[in-house]
Every structure is written in structure tokens, then in C-alpha cells.
Design a binder for these strands. Sequence first.
DNA 1: CTCCTTGCAAATGCTTTGCATTTAT
DNA 2: ATAAATGCAAAGCATTTGCAAGGAG
Lengths: 138, 138
Amino acid sequence: MDTVATISPELRMTGNRQIVLEVLRGTTAHPTAHQLFLLAREQQPQLGFATVYRTLDLLVKHHLAQEVFRDKDGAAHYDANVTRHDHAICDRCGRIEDVSAPLHALAYAIVERSSGFHIQWHASAFSGLCADCAADAE
Amino acid sequence: MDTVATISPELRMTGNRQIVLEVLRGTTAHPTAHQLFLLAREQQPQLGFATVYRTLDLLVKHHLAQEVFRDKDGAAHYDANVTRHDHAICDRCGRIEDVSAPLHALAYAIVERSSGFHIQWHASAFSGLCADCAADAE
DNA sequence: CTCCTTGCAAATGCTTTGCATTTAT
DNA sequence: ATAAATGCAAAGCATTTGCAAGGAG
């Protein structure tokens, strides 16, 4: 099941952009722009970080990636999975897990009913202890 | 119903801190640190913005305020309402509304059931059009 | 040739920190 | 007198932008 379009008609897929997109698709770690820069630079040593930021903007505009949340430092985290989903962040090990439950659909209904908002976008991040760390902490 | 403690045993309530807390309690606009600085400075002209940031850290640590979300510019927004609740942000008029529905309780149950996380904190922000703007746009 | 892309460096915006001074206990 | 709080300026991050050089159509 491929939920993500491989190419976008309007976006010229240069070598740099291809590498950034491949690196993002090759991880489930929800990297920041800077983390992506470090990974992509392994394959393209003269890559500049401004290119990564510009590429991420383009990928988001063309729905090939999404910014999923901002961490406590204010750094944006990206995901090549462009379906709407939420995230759970472990305060202990730093793991970031997708929340696959259709929370957003429920949330939209509740928010729209209670406030009258017509929701177009949302970001939810939950933090605490992941199952493994909670077990360790006992 | 006062959900907020007026004082905290460990926190020395200096004049500056009192003013920042009063300004935050006097608004439902979920201001940023800089907006709070501007408002508080009206009552205390020689106030420095570093003091506001330091005060906000303290207020959060002492549960007299919370950081409710970060906007697209990465700026943190604060709230003297320390109960857990979500926010809806209008893309058109910029209004930030509390979502009073007990979304978080539902979300916690769903996330905990699906991922095994023990949630301690969360931030959810929804954006779209508020009821008024949606009506205007028709 | 012309436009888009890129790298570098500088600039920006939010926040934190170092440090000397003032204030409270 | 001892410790905490404050203002100011400088530093720190994440991100954006100006600009000149490089590359594709």
C-alpha cells in the first residue's frame, strides 16, 4: 500500500531533492531538518543546509512530506508519511512513535462540534513513557 | 471554581512576577512571551524581557501557567489556565479558542491503548476557520 | 540564453545565558 | 552579609533570505 506519490508533476526532482526525499522515506524516526541534512550529506558531501530547508518546504507544498510537530526546542520534525496521524514521544528514550489509531477523525468531530471550527490542519503530540521504558521503570 | 492556585509555597512572588501572572490571567488570548512582555511593561516600564522569560519558566515549573503550543514561527504561547485542554486556531482571523470538550481524556485512552504509552503531557492544536470566518467565507 | 537550483554567509526571530547591579531576607 | 532577582547585552538555536555561481532545458 503506497499512500505517497513517488513524483509530483510540478516539482523538478533534482539529485539533492531525490536524496532528501529518499532519506526521509528511509526512516521512521521523524527527523528534524538538521538531522536530515546530516544524513543526506553522507551521500552528497557538498550539500548545504539551506537546500535541505528549501527542499523540505517544497516537499511539504507538493504533499510528499509533512511537518508533524515541533519539539520543545522549537525544531520541526518531518515525516514522509503524509497521512494524518499523531505522535507519542517518550520522555526517557526519546523514541517517537506513530499513533495509528484514528484519533484525528474523532478529534475533528469533537472539536468541530464544540467550537464550530472547520479544521484544516492539526498537530498533536503526546509525551510520557513508552511501554518499554514504563516497564523498565517499575 | 478556581482551578488555579493563587500562590505557590516555593515561589517568591516578586512585583515583576506578580505583574506577569496577572497579565496572563487577565487575557484569554494565549499570548507569547513577547506579547506578555509588552503588556507587562505598561505597568513596569523598566521590565526586561529576560525577566519575562525567566518568570514564565518559573510559573510553568510551579504550575501557575502552562505552555500550550508553539505556533508556526516557533513562538511559545502561554495560558494561566493550567487544566489540560486543546486549542483551535483560526487561519483567517488568528483567533485562538480553547477546546473545552474533554478531548484529551479520550485521546489519552486511545493513545495509551494503541501504543502502551503512559502519557504525562500533550499538546494539540487544530487550525482551520473559526465559525465566524467560515460563515463570512460562504 | 534564460530560468531554476544551489552553496555560502549573513540576517532573522525566539529564547537563553553571563555578568554586574540591585533587592530581599 | 548572603542569596536571589533583575536589566542589559551578547550568545545560541532553528530557520530564512540575499546573492553570486553553477546547471538544466
